[in-house]
Design a protein around this nucleic acid. Structure first.
Lengths: 158, 158
DNA sequence: CAATTAGTTCTGTAATTACAGAACCAAAAA
DNA sequence: TTTTTGGTTCTGTAATTACAGAACTAATTG
């Protein structure tokens, strides 16, 4: 029987942060994103972020601005309060995935271009290369379909 | 009417190399991988690689070993020739995608864990977070299906 | 029109990366 | 047995990254 050990909030921040880093973001960004996932309430001020994570203003500022430019984070304001409150933009992840898809599809394109420039002396290799490009195309299409499917499902429910 | 400008081999190497870098690989790795895509014949020796790309032995060695450890590159040998000839392992890209899928699914898991630790005071946020986790799950499943579909398609044809 | 607040931007630096160059080494060839 | 080949590994470094800390600024508040 597996004992489910409850993680502390700080542990979540580390764990999520590391995963986020693996997606290619800087450490500070990962931890900010992670903090905003576990944050209760889910919106936190600039100050709260830097205090909780013990990172500098500059790191918070640049990270937040980057995350906002990528639509992964947004902010709200509260009446009678000058501060901005930062929170996760849930649609950002989807945007991110779409961008990655586009990149991969582009990679497939390039492979096809390369193919057209190759000699026909190594048919086996060329065939494999073409198959790779087709695979990328295929996956791109399938993922697009999946996204559509998801969106339809969501619309029906919501 | 679009004029299709034919790229030189070196240009392909740059273009593919950059794309590969964007997938998170080091510059040298990107260019080696790119070179192996356009290489005619598609297998090249250690020496040929370093000469063509004008990079050091150490860079070639570490890059090739890394690429091989990731199953993106493999090597063949030729009778009566001590050298190894490196070439692209076409199944590597698929492995790569599978690994990325696994990572993303893991990310979804963590989000669900975080969810279970959140208070129920911010239902809207929690719901959105849950939806995100479900979305990642959904995409993971869809991609797995797509991969199966591709494999069946390939089996039927090949 | 000060003083405070909520950040931004600049400057410097510690840590890390990505690689070159040289030393090195095991297997094969001479 | 020495020499050559086909790499690998070590050492040093230039370039880059990721951030701290301080200076700065525009809006708000007193």
């Amino acid at each position: 029987m597996k004992v489910e050990k409850k993680l502390s909030a700080k542990d979540y921040v580390e764990k999520i942060g590391v995963s986020f880093e693996k997606e290619g973001f800087q450490p500070a960004m990962g931890r900010i994103f992670a903090y905003l996932i576990i944050a209760d309430p889910p919106h936190k001020s600039f100050e709260e972020i830097l205090e909780y994570l013990k990172i500098s203003k500059s790191a918070v500022s640049t990270s937040l601005n980057y995350l906002m430019s990528r639509d992964l984070v947004e902010y709200i304001t509260l009446p009678g309060d000058r501060k901005r409150y930062f929170k996760i933009n849930m649609s950002g992840w989807l945007t991110l995935i779409k961008k990655k898809m586009a990149r991969r599809s582009f990679f497939g394109e390039i492979m096809k271009e390369a193919l057209s420039a190759r000699s026909n002396k190594y048919k086996e290799f060329n065939d494999a290369l073409e198959e790779q490009a087709e695979f990328l195309d295929f996956m791109h299409k399938e993922m697009k379909d999946a996204l559509d499917k998801w969106e339809r499902k969501k619309k029906k429910k919501g």
